[in-house]
Write a protein that binds this DNA or RNA. Structure first.
Lengths: 338, 338
DNA sequence: CTGAAAGCGCTAACAG
DNA sequence: CTGTTAGCGCTTTCAG
């Protein structure tokens, strides 16, 4: 397990270790000749600096934390990939955490990070907007925090979101224009900014089209799949079922598909469905699902780029700023007129 | 950015920092009283040890690297989640990397890890079995490496795989029993152990059922989607097309679905399809896809558990061992007899 | 039971 | 241009 360190290098070269250190970091007051000698030897001896020593000395870990609710969600896994890629290119490492939508866990992850383990955090917070003291405290120590997708409204900093409200409105209007008289909204993140914006968009579209809001068409789903199933089933078998559905979350649309299969409700004939989704194979569902796709990769790329820029250049210091990246609407068979 | 450190604590308590250190680590030669005092103060001052200092001192980072080809693949993202969960429970952090199937990148990631950044590596290697000197060298320094799924055959260590050969054989036989006379194999990882085992299983089943191997039914796919599409199309429009297909990789099955849609080939009537897959919504494809699901979560959990055990207890030292976790076969409409 | 001191590997200030 | 030295925050002998 013996690693080769800077002293070994220095000894081998018969110079001081500070010289080695400087040479390796291209200090301008080391002669080109020694630099070359040092670098050659470093190569030969397969030297890699000990990251803990540098981090300790420099108060800089060159790693960031990426905290998401669930890595298995395609939206998040895509964002993770993006962050990893730019991290790799720019010489940063990424510690990845899943909160599993557990606010307590999110909190405890933060406490693990708060003594220099990372230089900053990119995160999508858990579904519990109220309690962000741990995040504020962390940011208060000078660590940058960038939110994406699931942001905390009352946090001063960078928030990267998508045009949720507008596109939810557009999608609702799209359904209305396809002839839907009763468009339902399958809420699941009730008290959350994203859910709220999507719900707002939905309501805006109704208003714009002079359709009175029917509370019974807004389903209050949860993280409990079985319960959602039951609720959707009740809605679809009720006296006045919807003929269109906007799902702010992929899972709800999938659940809706399941229920329709059970009830032999034909999509899109009896019910048209639009869903927010990052499902890779939406077109292969039966029927192909009309989707609003959030720009996960772009969001991740921008978040990472902004963070690393802020580390490296003063002029990129992060400010209180909300960046909107448009989602992509893709029409498929689940909303076709028959 | 000023963090509170052990000296601050010591000062506040009027004791030596060594006492604080020992108290916090529950050394038995510190009085219960001081321990309590120290711990209370640590709590009050919200002290978190600096991980770099401990790592430097102890030559132990309490973090592992998790290297996979692509985090967006559902199999890998599930494994990542499993590793994260176990890591969190046991006090380890996980640095996550995607190689994007680039062997050079995998190599360079290893060079970043080789001076104590991590205590071990859990990985699924890129599709390039030949060159693993970097891994051997890394392991040679005493770092444990655990492979899962995409393992290196000629590496002495823990390999966690699934019962690929058997289940590929079973699946092929399943197709034969469903009446398929010509079962194709949509290879994509030709020179890789996994692909090989799946292919072997396929061939075993043919042999067992006294069906001569027809080389034209083994497609040599690549990572190039367009090309695979072309190859599958050619196969299905050829003079003697298959009536069953075993896809060793989800992507090939999906591509096959696309081609069938284009060619208006009815699945399962004209072509039955079985695929290895960790697609969450396989049952919602059109038609529902019969799958072999690899136990991603279990594999990740076991890999992580073994690794952490090996750190903590001598008796769990890793040895040259291959662990097989069975995959799950789920029959759906894509293989139904009509 | 508690404290002083050395040292993990690196960097940076300061001397030469 | 190169070397000496102190110190990042922690752990761990070793003395008291």
């Amino acid at each position: 397990m013996k690693q080769i360190n800077i002293s070994d290098l220095a000894k081998a070269l018969n110079v001081a270790k500070s010289t080695v250190s400087k040479a390796l970091r291209d200090s301008h007051n080391i002669s080109t000749k020694t630099k070359d000698r040092v670098k050659a030897m470093a190569m030969e001896m397969d030297y890699q600096p000990n990251p803990h020593a540098s981090s300790l000395k420099n108060h800089k870990s060159n790693t960031i934390a990426l905290i998401v609710p669930d890595t298995t969600n395609h939206f998040f896994s895509t964002a993770i990939k993006a962050v990893q890629l730019v991290g790799y290119e720019r010489g940063y490492h990424v510690l990845a955490y899943s909160t599993l939508d557990d606010a307590e866990k999110e909190k405890s992850i933060f406490s693990l990070l708060k003594n220099g383990r990372v230089d900053g955090v990119i995160m999508s917070t858990v579904n519990d907007a109220g309690h962000i003291d741990h995040i504020k405290e962390f940011a208060g120590k000078g660590y940058p925090v960038i939110f994406f997708d699931r942001v905390c409204e009352d946090f001063d900093g960078v928030k990267i979101i998508t045009n949720d409200l507008e596109i939810a409105s557009d999608a609702t209007e799209f359904l209305i224009n396809k002839g839907c008289k009763r468009v339902a909204f399958l809420s699941v993140l009730k008290d959350f900014s994203i859910g709220n914006n999507r719900l707002k968009g939905y309501m805006n579209a109704l208003e714009k089209n002079k359709i009175p809001l029917d509370e019974s068409l807004i389903l209050n789903g949860s993280m409990d799949y079985e319960n959602n199933h039951k609720l959707i089933r009740e809605m679809l078998t009720g006296t006045n079922p919807p003929d269109g559905v906007l799902a702010p979350v992929e899972k709800m649309a999938i659940t809706c598909y399941f229920v329709c299969k059970e009830l032999k409700i034909n999509i899109p004939k009896q019910l048209k469905v639009v869903s927010y989704s990052n499902l890779e194979y939406a077109s292969l569902l039966s029927p192909g699902l009309t989707t609003i796709t959030q720009p996960a990769f772009e969001m991740g790329t921008i978040a990472a780029t902004m963070m690393f820029n802020s580390f490296e250049k003063k002029k990129y210091r992060l400010k209180n700023e909300t960046i909107v990246i448009p989602s992509v609407f893709t029409e498929r068979d689940s909303t076709v007129e028959i």
